[in-house]
Design a protein around this nucleic acid. Structure first.
Lengths: 224, 224
DNA sequence: TGCTAACTGTCAGTTTTTTGGAAGCTTTCT
DNA sequence: AGAAAGCTTCCAAAAAACTGACAGTTAGCA
């Protein structure tokens, strides 16, 4: 069952949306303000979030920023509801990271279309639970990494960093890109930090450490 | 340069769209009916197609069906323009395979947003982005250059220089131009520097080194 | 709840690699 | 042959990356 979190303060609208979501086979969870939405999203990450940008208390864009910045919720697609005239570019583009939007007043039908479309896009690539690259083995289900059969203890950051590189072996990823995907959408930090963690990761991986190649001036890549 | 094919019979609207696409940095190609659109799409596949569903002669949905059914064009994302009340579900959903839609009357801004969004989504996935010129192979994703199958280690400047030449084989590029594009717009430096790097590049490329021709008095070019 | 160990991000010193340009040599053209 | 353009070698300076230390934070455990 796919859960959709609806963050919407107008009760009538929220009910209407929930009703239709249910009709479409989703499991809607409705909350009335941004804070509640953040909590719910954190404690029980849904498959998709519908976020009204005009919320009381906390700016909707602020909620969006936090959602995309937090580790647990960064990957959850967000469709925003917005009134005409707001700065959609900023919200949907890279800056805030919404995945789609619907302009008020909208037809419920249109909203459902967008919801389905976004879920379709994001659900397409189910990740394999096991990977093997040379001496390196990653089991995403067990969260287990081995080198030459020996288990390697990685911290969460190291693990995510490794996953990012290993998922697309051969592909060069810039420090900025890694910061975005590993550290979160709008993390602001030193790109040197990536270096540090890379060093730690390499040393922990031992023999497999030099499977991670430095591409000077561009970033890092996993050897194929 | 990203090409967008616009299939639209209302000339005013077509021009408006083309104007804005150009402003956004795309290369618009406009045709007025479905048949011409199919031909153009087949002969010169664009990065995205904007299709008006209300076309004379051939039903827009029919054009869409053919586009999505043909091998060469199936992967090209399509954004449809549609009047309210048409059966959007059918068009956008799995049945016909449009990637997004905009309902007439629409704001140009919204259209551009959708165009950018669709291109972003589709650009993320598999772009083989490989080039081959004789014994030379360049993989931009992996940042890997090979000559006769052997990997060649290039520095960042050498790589950028090679890319500049290889992207437009046959075209002569002046030292000034190369300085601008490789070293940056407001770099101030000696054009002799280009010589130095070219020498290094040629020597590293080994057998493929003399694919880069000197055009005395003008600059350099990549052999076609 | 308080204590401890582990994890993180930042920084600064060190090492490695790249880079730009100078100078002399070679080729090409007239 | 002389001049102009291009090629090559070399080296100091700059850039990029690596690494270890440190302090703040978090998470686990008693």
């Amino acid at each position: 069952m796919q859960t959709v979190l609806v963050i919407e303060d107008e009760q009538d609208l929220a009910e209407l949306i929930a009703f239709h979501l249910e009709k479409e086979g989703f499991h809607p969870v409705v909350v009335a303000d941004g804070l509640a939405g953040l909590n719910e999203a954190r404690n029980n990450p849904p498959q998709l979030i519908l976020l009204d940008l005009m919320l009381p208390g906390m700016m909707g864009t602020e909620v969006l920023r936090i959602l995309k910045g937090a580790e647990k919720t960064a990957a959850v697609p967000v469709v925003v509801l917005t009134a005409k005239g707001e700065e959609i570019d900023r919200v949907v583009g890279f800056e805030l990271g919404a995945d789609d939007y619907v302009v008020k007043p909208f037809s419920v039908r249109e909203l459902m279309l967008r919801v389905r479309a976004v879920l379709r896009r994001n659900g397409e690539a189910p990740k394999p639970s096991q990977m093997a690259l040379g001496p390196l083995t990653i089991d995403t289900e067990q969260h287990l990494v081995t080198v030459d059969g020996e288990e390697v203890q990685l911290t969460s950051t190291e693990y995510k960093l490794l996953m990012n590189l290993a998922e697309r072996p051969g592909r060069v990823q810039s420090r900025e890109h890694l910061l975005q995907t590993v550290w979160g959408y709008n993390y602001i930090g030193d790109t040197r930090t990536v270096d540090t963690h890379l060093t730690r990761l390499r040393s922990k991986l031992g023999a497999a450490g030099d499977m991670i190649k430095t591409v000077r001036g561009f970033g890092y890549k996993m050897e194929q």
